[in-house]
Design a protein around this nucleic acid. Structure first.
Lengths: 225, 225
DNA sequence: ACAAAATTTTAGACTAATCTAAAAATATAT
DNA sequence: ATATATTTTTAGATTAGTCTAAAATTTTGT
């Protein structure tokens, strides 16, 4: 208990606002989007937004949407940092699969102790990315900028490295496991089917696999050089 | 999230009832005692007891006190198991001192995931005691029985081993650290002062230290054989 | 451009957990 | 043994977070 300024619930709203804003390239987040992601109703979201705006954690324009203030962003990044560090712990130390860790990390991210976070970070050897390839904000509250591309936007025969996923559902992650698509593996798009836009991909320069367009859109890669 | 049957608060009440009942050798716990340990008022405790009794987690006799039902005890032991496992993690893996871990474990004990607890237990190599010497209930919800004695009840010149503490305050634990009194060390009472009941103790068969009666009453030991 | 649809906010209510003040029950002390 | 003190419970309020239904605002489609 270092400084429980905000409730579990308030922290969650700020985290979700951060992640949705990021996904929308900095554009305002709507009430309905928040309702969907917080598993509540729009009316409840409106109430909470009024409260968070009063406390100066968000910029709230009625009917228009919200963005985080600097104070709100710092809270959000702190929560996201803890979430991602704990995910590394669960996979690297406890041997969980990357598809099993989200719900547990959703709980652990609210544990309040600066010292714990610091020691956990050191124990994990200061990881820069979580098991899904997402960057881990640093202790100062700065999110590293990463620029990955969707596999679906890469030119044919361009060698790339698998760096992350833009969907974290267990079903999607298990699907990747079955196809042996892991972080760090080499990928090269050989062909895109005219029929269903599915992809033929050379995996690690060895085997050819086939993935749907839906999968290709959610694989984040960087050019291999 | 395996089965969040109870709220954070309800879990806490059951845990505290367990620990106080244990401390009173199975006797009923009073409303005022609970108010003190939950940092609330007696009126709030009464409300919660009515609720817990309705759900059959406690045996509640108005004005008399409470004990746990079998169901309540299972919940309490699950929370205590998690608390003590996390304490082992904090000390053994993250290098915290035994005086720094209580508040953090108070939060971690409510993380709800059977699989996490199981993997944490294995990761820690199935410890049987926490860093204060308290026994860790097993996965089946059974508390190992241990029988330690207070150092203040041990005969002069009897060699004993330091096994635990009956007070967990940071101040007390830090005091022991300064005197180099740790779990597992050997102790032998050489003399008790007539003047202030303070103890001369031979530590690990090497150095003589002096501790107050108050300290001697809160050191748990077992006969060295 | 404006009617219909969709979204968002407000109003009023509910639950969990807490509080203070007052009433009821139990314990204590001469 | 009974008056006094202590403890516990009840009654009535409060706060955080949620809900449904209705009102207000914005967006969309022709």
């Amino acid at each position: 208990m270092d400084n429980q300024l905000l409730s579990f619930t308030e922290e969650n709203y700020l985290k979700i606002i951060y992640l949705l804003t990021e996904r929308h390239n900095g554009n305002e987040v709507s009430t309905n989007q928040l309702a969907e992601h917080t598993q509540t109703k729009a009316a409840s979201v409106s109430d909470m937004l009024r409260k968070l705006a009063e406390k100066n954690y968000i910029n709230y324009r009625k009917y228009q949407g919200v963005t985080l203030t600097e104070a709100g962003e710092q809270i959000a990044l702190g929560v996201i940092r803890k979430h991602r560090l704990w995910e590394v712990f669960l996979v690297e130390k406890l041997g969980f699969g990357w598809d099993e860790i989200h719900d547990i990390a959703e709980q652990l991210e609210h544990i309040d102790s600066k010292e714990l976070t610091k020691r956990l970070d050191d124990f994990l050897e200061n990881p820069k990315f979580d098991p899904h390839g997402d960057p881990i904000p640093d202790a100062k509250g700065k999110m590293p900028s990463v620029s990955y591309q969707k596999l679906s936007e890469i030119a044919l025969n361009q060698s790339v490295v698998m760096m992350g996923v833009s969907v974290h559902s267990p079903a999607f992650l298990q699907h990747l496991d079955k196809q042996q698509i892991n972080l760090g593996c080499g990928l090269k798009v050989l062909e895109i089917s005219d029929f269903d836009k599915s992809y033929s991909i050379l995996l690690d320069g060895k085997t050819t696999i086939f993935v749907s367009n839906e999968v290709a859109k959610n694989l984040l890669v960087s050019i291999d050089e």
